[in-house]
């Protein structure tokens, strides 16, 4: 199986956007303020470069690329949890409960790691496609739940920072689309694979694109009432 120009364009696009978010934050002196987010974007850019080297060296259908893709993806999920923790901390900053969030997040992360280890231990030596699809689906779904709870907290706390609102909503779109695709793949393994192959890279492009837009167009001082965004059908 060969990669076409569209695959390379999506790939290059995500790499450039990820790098842009980091460089932009650095020059605007916002790197530390959004530290975990920038570290995630930086790592995602490095992983994208590594994927290219891995494919060029071993090939797209090689076992090496298969392991590289899913292991680095798992590491990126761990980093993304730290991004979510930082969002939670920012929303609850006035309540001074950051310490509790860190404890809960660490316990949650350890529980996911332990669960994944126990499953991987049972099937060691044959990390199958079915298993990784299920693992990705579960990890993304935990992400959906966490973002959903975060959005609920934002509504409850009357959070008005437009930048934070847009960053969280973009993350929600990313997690829910990815979890949905992996769940579909798990449900219908016989469906044509190209649908499942396309959506994760597109979502990989969506997240840095939406975040780049938010950082460049929405100022830190911009305010928006999240309750106004809720759909009310009269």
């Amino acid at each position: 199986m060969m990669l076409g120009p569209v695959d390379y364009s999506v790939w290059l696009g995500s790499f450039l956007l990820e790098a842009f978010v980091v460089v932009y934050a650095f020059f605007r002196k916002e790197f530390v303020r959004y530290l975990t987010l920038n570290l995630y974007m930086l790592s995602a850019a490095v992983v994208t470069c590594g994927s290219y080297i891995c494919i060029k060296t071993f090939g797209y259908v090689s076992a090496s690329y298969f392991y590289y893709y899913y292991y680095t993806d798992s590491l990126l999920y761990v980093l993304m949890y730290f991004v979510l923790i930082q969002f939670y901390e920012r929303i609850f900053v006035e309540m001074k409960v950051s310490r509790y969030f860190r404890v809960v997040a660490t316990v949650l992360l350890a529980a996911i790691a332990l669960f994944s280890y126990s499953v991987a231990h049972q099937i060691k030596g044959h990390l199958t496609q079915q298993f990784v699809v299920q693992l990705e689906q579960n990890l993304n779904f935990v992400g959906v739940v966490l973002v959903y709870v975060l959005w609920g907290a934002m509504l409850k706390m009357h959070e008005t920072r437009t930048r934070l609102i847009q960053l969280v909503l973009a993350l929600g779109v990313y997690y829910s689309a990815t979890a949905g695709v992996y769940a579909l793949q798990n449900l219908f393994p016989a469906l044509p694979g190209h649908i499942f192959l396309w959506i994760p890279p597109i979502m990989g492009l969506w997240l840095p694109l939406a975040w780049a837009y938010t950082f460049t167009k929405v100022s830190e001082d911009a305010r928006l009432a999240p309750a106004r965004l809720q759909v009310r059908v009269r």
């Binding site: 959005w151 609102i165 929600g172 829910s176 759909v231």
Partner: peptide, 20 residues
């Protein structure tokens, strides 16, 4: 269940993002 919840969450987040 994950598929149904994720798709409905996706629609909600997408609509909210566009409304923002």
């Amino acid at each position: 269940a994950i598929c149904v919840i994720s798709v409905s969450a996706f629609l909600q987040f997408f609509v909210l993002h566009c409304r923002s």
